[in-house]
Simulated assay, not measured.
Amino acid sequence: MGTSWSLQVVSPPAGASDGVQAAFDRVVAQMSQWEAESDLSRFNRAVPGAWYSVPGEFAHVVAAALEISSASGGAFDPCLGALTERWGFGSAGPIDRIPVDTTGGAIDRRIDFDAAGPRIRRSEGAALDLSGIAKGYGVDLAAEWLLAQGVRHFLLEVGGELRGEGIRPDGEPWWVDVEMPPSAPVAPYRLALHDLSVATSGNYRRGLARGGQHYSHSFDPKTGRPIVNGVSSVTVLHRSCMMADGWATALTVLGPQAGIARADEQQLAACVIAGDREYISRAWREMLD
């Protein structure tokens, strides 16, 4: 996944680290666009329109991605793999020049999902990219493995996505601080992760700078270009780290006002930082109270 992970656990069983790493390895083997032989990479090379059988974990993430895509009005789009590659955010690596014409929404980008298979197929213009949700799923998969081993109290973190279960040995919840963009005049929130996950999408960390201009790594599916809505950070709390991860991406694309409106509609606890302003959802505000 191109990042590090950490685990704080009360009474860890033998082989805890190996079990967690095995869960992450399974996600990479199935869903990485940087691994040429992953299920995702082989699917993207498959003939458009042909059904492709996928493992259960892969199918679970695709189903969640399509669910968030529908619920967000298309702001979360798992079919943007060709765009992310073209802009230098994929396996091909950085680019020297900014793409001139990405044709935006004119391309038919569609993934069809058959849960009974499970299997998926793609339209000619679609290439699957699960980087906006798969890392969160990796946290969930490893967390569920720990729970199945009888581990009840732990804090698991992968590249800034976290899931806390139970409590610390001192009886306190797992406290974590939300990192704010350097330019934001907003104090970091301290969150209690008691059977809860948190994911943050930050545009200030990853992007592309060319010709004195910064381009976000988050894309607007309607234009086919990096977003320009001023959002620098979105944090979402959810029981599922996968859903927190996917919705943080979707709200980033929607922008501050539309993002918070959608968060309220979906009853999501969300905080959006755009410029020097902070926008919070009703569910986030209720947690403050």
Rank of each mutant, 00 (worst) to 15 (best):
V176N: 00
H153M: 06
F113L: 04
N203G: 09
Y137V: 01
G164N: 01
N229F: 08
R119Y: 01
V61H: 02
G93E: 00
A16T: 14
C271L: 13
R45F: 09
G125Q: 05
V272W: 01
E161V: 10
S17V: 13
G259I: 06
A283L: 14
A134Y: 02
I167R: 15
V47Q: 13
G19S: 14
E124T: 15
Q21F: 08
G132C: 07
E85T: 04
D18Q: 15
S232M: 09
R163V: 11
L208M: 11
P188M: 07
L7I: 14
R210C: 11
V100E: 15
I273R: 00
E35N: 15
G105R: 05
R152G: 06
A274Y: 10
P188H: 12
Q257K: 15
V10H: 10
A283H: 11
G132V: 05
Q33H: 15
A23Q: 07
G255V: 06
T200Q: 02
L196P: 02
D77G: 05
H214T: 10
R109A: 06
V100H: 14
A274V: 08
L288I: 10
Y204G: 05
N44S: 12
L237R: 00
C79S: 11
F76E: 12
P181Y: 00
H60T: 13
V47N: 13
L40G: 07
L196C: 10
L251R: 05
L146Q: 07
V272A: 02
D220V: 11
G138Y: 02
L208Q: 03
V178P: 00
A209H: 10
V61R: 01
S233P: 00
S38F: 09
G171S: 08
P99H: 02
E172C: 09
G81A: 08
W51N: 09
S4R: 15
A250F: 07
A92F: 09
T252R: 04
L251N: 00
L193C: 03
V186Y: 03
G171V: 07
Q257H: 13
H217G: 01
L162K: 13
G150C: 06
R262Y: 13
V178L: 11
Q33R: 12
S41H: 04
E157C: 12
S41N: 03
A274M: 05
T103Y: 11
E35T: 13
Q257D: 10
S69F: 02
Y279T: 06
R205K: 08
A63F: 05
L237Q: 06
L196K: 06
G132T: 03
D220C: 12
G275E: 08
P226H: 08
G259H: 09
W284N: 10
W34Y: 14
G2D: 15
R210E: 11
F24A: 04
T223P: 10
P185C: 05
G2P: 02
P182N: 09
A274L: 09
L80G: 10
G90S: 15
F154H: 00
Q21E: 13
I95R: 10
I68G: 00
P221Y: 01
D129R: 03
E265I: 06
D18M: 10
